[in-house]
Simulated assay, not measured.
Amino acid sequence: MYYKTKIKDIVRIPPYRFEEPLKEVAIKTLNETYEGRLDKKLGLLICVNAIDDISEGKLIMGDGASYHNVVFDAIFFKPEQHEIFNGEVIDIADYGAFVRIGAMDGLIHVSQVTDDYINHDGKRGALIAKESNKTLGVGDLVRARAVSVSIKDESTNSMENHRNSKIPLTMRQNNLGKFEWIEEAKQKSKKGE
């Protein structure tokens, strides 16, 4: 889920940017500082998109930059347990499929792809259902549900930390799975099969 949140902070404007419009510089600076940061409560900060209020700057002896109290709008992505996502398969491993959901990635373990037994075909880079021959590969569009969400808070601006957050997904319910599978199931139900 995407959220818009108001945040209060202090932004440092370096002297070489004093001639530029203050709000534009503040947004750029805040994005450089916070974009990609992960907060356990708020989620992954996607971007700072607007400044609501910015105070007159204060100078600190020996620094030369101006410091401004600021209230800004930020967009966060925070997956919720049981939330349903449309996503794209970005990688296949012998234990499951990695799916890009919004700004993060989730994992569909082989046991959660279908009710069928799943084999990994390394040559094709696909997961194949034994009885139904359904295949799942890189680039496939899927609908999945978050089984649980474990977000790891970070103290640095490392993009790797949010990749350590775990979002296990399932496609083993009605109206979930590869888009083609969902459409096939709808057609069968219309025909009464």
Rank of each mutant, 00 (worst) to 15 (best):
N175Q: 13
E183T: 00
R124Y: 01
S132T: 13
G137P: 08
G125T: 05
F179W: 04
K152D: 09
I167P: 07
R143H: 01
N157C: 10
D140K: 03
N164W: 08
N161P: 02
M171T: 11
R163A: 10
D140S: 07
S155F: 04
N175G: 07
V138T: 09
L136V: 08
V147T: 14
E183A: 00
K134S: 03
R145G: 04
K188D: 02
V138F: 05
E180H: 04
F179K: 03
Q187H: 06
N174S: 12
K152H: 13
N175K: 13
L169A: 12
A185M: 13
N133Y: 09
R172Q: 07
T170Q: 11
L176F: 14
F179Y: 04
I167R: 08
I151L: 15
E184R: 13
N175H: 14
K188W: 05
E180F: 03
D153Q: 13
T156I: 12
M171R: 05
K152I: 15
I167H: 03
T170Y: 10
R163K: 15
K134E: 03
G177T: 10
A126R: 08
V138A: 05
A126E: 11
D153M: 06
S189A: 15
T156D: 13
A185I: 09
K152F: 13
A146V: 15
S148I: 10
R163Y: 12
S155D: 06
S158Y: 06
W181Y: 02
T156V: 12
N174I: 13
R163D: 10
N133R: 08
G139T: 12
M159L: 11
R143N: 01
N164A: 09
T170P: 11
S150A: 09
K166M: 11
M159D: 06
E131G: 00
N161K: 13
N157I: 10
G125V: 05
N175A: 12
K134W: 07
E183L: 00
Q187N: 06
K191S: 10
M159P: 05
A129S: 11
K178L: 02
E183I: 00
P168R: 14
D140C: 06
Q187E: 07
F179T: 02
N174E: 14
T156Y: 12
S150C: 06
S165R: 11
E180Y: 05
K134T: 02
L141W: 05
S148R: 15
D153N: 14
D140F: 08
V147C: 05
S155E: 09
K190M: 10
N161C: 05
T170I: 14
K188P: 00
N133S: 06
R145I: 11
E154A: 08
V142E: 01
L176A: 14
K190G: 01
K166G: 04
E180A: 06
R172I: 08
V147W: 04
I167Y: 02
K188L: 09
D140N: 13
P168M: 12
A129I: 02
K186G: 00
R143I: 02
I167C: 07
R143K: 13
A129W: 00
K166S: 11
H162E: 09
N175S: 10
L169N: 13
N157H: 13
